[in-house]
Design a protein around this nucleic acid. Sequence first.
DNA 1: GATGCGACCCTAGCACTGCTAGACAATCGA
DNA 2: TCGATTGTCTAGCAGTGCTAGGGTCGCATC
Lengths: 192, 192
Amino acid sequence: MSVQERKERERAGRERLIVATARELAEQQGWDAVTTRRLAERIEYSQPVLYSHFRGKREIIGAVALVGAAEMAALLRAAARAADGPRARAGALARAYLDFAERNPAVYDAMFQLDGGLAFAHDDTPEPLKDAFAALLENLEDVAGDGVHPGLFTEVFWAALHGLATLTRAGRLPPEETGRRIGLLVDRLAQV
Amino acid sequence: MSVQERKERERAGRERLIVATARELAEQQGWDAVTTRRLAERIEYSQPVLYSHFRGKREIIGAVALVGAAEMAALLRAAARAADGPRARAGALARAYLDFAERNPAVYDAMFQLDGGLAFAHDDTPEPLKDAFAALLENLEDVAGDGVHPGLFTEVFWAALHGLATLTRAGRLPPEETGRRIGLLVDRLAQV
DNA sequence: GATGCGACCCTAGCACTGCTAGACAATCGA
DNA sequence: TCGATTGTCTAGCAGTGCTAGGGTCGCATC
């Protein structure tokens, strides 16, 4: 029995290694550089080993996305905790969100740009994703305004942040003004 | 001389055919299905012909993006013209934008999601892209509010629309509520 | 401790991708 | 009519995600 447990531990460890290596490689050289061959070489196994853990490259991207979502949720909550008052919390949340996207572009891509084969906005949405949304929601409901559904407000707020994040990263928006854009956004969206 | 002119006309026509076919194929089966082989087969030429018009697949995507930008700019202006008053114009603009993204997902991807090798937010940004932004700007400056730079306001407004468009299309946001999200967004962002 | 079995992993290969070199044919100017 | 140039195609390269099959290792059993 203990032999089997050890094997499972080793398997789980190797799976984490795959995900961490994929993330690392993606951050270093972009997702295009994350090929199954290169990934296999870095973890010092052959390609087929990857497929004994994941159905394919898509699932690996999805796994990176889940890890990233958990990380982001924690960062968002920490940023919100450090702020005083609902409005300041909203601002801190927005800055933390864009900061995460800027510091972890590959992970952010895995979460929202690439196809990681993950379900969204459904009952079977993976927990880390729902939790990341919850981290936004619980810190925004106080500024949604009267008569506005907090969930809907959070969706709009999130979409705006997502737009800023992706357009900035793709070179569509000059990054120097990010701070002012956040200021304007929070100023207008957040009520009292 | 007229022979040369005819040849240039034919070349230009074939180039338009390539772009239109790429767009069509992408809308039908997604950009992944737009391979140089399939594209060449559809235009009834061999692959290398594509490379006599474009440096590579990237440039073809970029060409589709430019056509799309021109189309979008026209649609945005038409929608804005049909509305009465600054605020209603902003609303109409937002609906037209999301409508375009929903009706032409592949073109929208070419413009903002994929790498078409286009320069943005620079002096050498292609005219159609600058013009599409201008179409937003000229219909939003009246609702930017006092003391707010219209360009900055347009960027934020645009980012929010872009976020809604991409998250909705990727299944991250349920599409049923799109109308209410637009309502909330315009209601908060637009100042009288 | 030997043995048979099963889990595990690797080599090799498939069909596909974007892209290009070089041969060939059609068209043009003289 | 002939030579040169332009244009196009066939064939092939290196690389992609993914998989079938064989072989080797470590384990549970006798």
